[in-house]
């Protein structure tokens, strides 16, 4: 029997297309237009061709910020994903502890980015902050305003505190959806704790882990508010990530053309890395499912 294709349902997605056009496509088109022109305001533009793209590609400032971004994302993923899995594995699966743990885990996610930044900015201050003063009293030379290593440690710990909960909640959702029959079969086979994790829990968490890795990578690669509030990109440019640099260029210096070119290169990098992550992880999942 020949299959019938009915494409009329596509009309139902028209409202979403209109919304996406106004919120994403039109702004993106404008950024592309700005990236090949120069402006001094008042809607007057002058053709610059590919000059801004060439400037971006030849600028150490861009490559350094990109390098810092990649290192930051790699560290964040290396800490938050295993830690999130570990916490989810150790959370209670039934009883009164479940809602308590879920609420505690959800709390950091409910705090706005700038408030998280402010909390850690005050928390880490050597003169009035609880963390800063405690470390100073313990004889540890900690000062995130002056020391690049301390600044990096502070924003990494802050991000881990803020976002590990997301990984925990996603992994927990994956874990509670595993039917008891799998565990019973493992017990009958005399499987060790590691075997249960390796051959039952980890594969069953594959899909949610994919979402967790993608979300955390995208978010950490595009991080702006928290490090901006805590360190302002300093000391020097040590914690200046691409987004901070971009805002400095576009709003601080009003270099709209170079900022547009830089944001397009940034967009391409995010798009391709996300595609690689997504493709690798979904294909691994499919191969395992075969």
């Amino acid at each position: 029997m020949e299959r019938t294709y009915n494409n009329k349902a596509w009309f139902l997605v028209l409202p979403v297309l209109v919304l996406v056009a106004f919120s994403a496509i039109i702004p993106l088109m404008t950024v592309v237009n700005y990236s090949v022109q120069d402006t001094f305001g008042n809607n007057q533009f002058f053709w610059a061709g590919l000059d801004w793209f060439q400037d971006v590609l030849e600028s150490n400032r861009f490559w350094n910020a990109l390098g810092r971004n990649l290192i930051f994302s790699a560290i964040i993923l290396a800490i938050e994903i295993p830690l999130g899995i570990y916490i989810a594995l150790n959370m209670p699966k039934k009883g009164w502890g479940v809602p308590v743990c879920l609420v505690l885990m959800a709390l950091p996610l409910l705090i706005p980015w700038n408030v998280v930044g402010t909390i850690w900015q005050v928390f880490g201050r050597v003169d009035i902050g609880l963390l800063g003063r405690t470390l100073a009293a313990a004889g540890i030379d900690y000062n995130y305003v002056q020391d690049p290593v301390d600044a990096w440690l502070t924003i990494i710990v802050m991000d881990v505190w803020h976002w590990t909960s997301l990984v925990v909640l996603l992994c927990y959702a994956g874990l509670v959806s595993i039917p008891d029959a799998y565990y019973q079969a493992a017990r009958i086979d005399g499987a060790s704790r590691w075997s249960v994790f390796r051959f039952i829990q980890l594969p069953k968490m594959g899909r949610v882990l994919l979402i967790a890795v993608l979300l955390r990578f995208m978010d950490s690669f595009m991080i702006y508010t928290e490090p901006f509030v805590v360190t302002g990109g300093g000391p020097g440019n040590e914690t200046t990530f691409l987004s901070i640099d971009l805002v400095k260029m576009a709003i601080g210096q009003f270099d709209v053309g170079p900022a547009a070119a830089m944001s397009l290169v940034y967009f391409l990098i995010v798009l391709s890395l996300s595609w690689v992550f997504y493709t690798v992880m979904t294909n691994q999942g499919q191969e395992k499912g075969k």
């Binding site: 088109m29 592309v32 237009n33 090949v36 809607n43």
Partner: peptide, 13 residues
């Protein structure tokens, strides 16, 4: 006019 269209970018899109 705020979108700053040019012929090369319009051709691209």
């Amino acid at each position: 006019s705020w979108m700053a269209w040019t012929w090369p970018t319009a051709t691209f899109f």
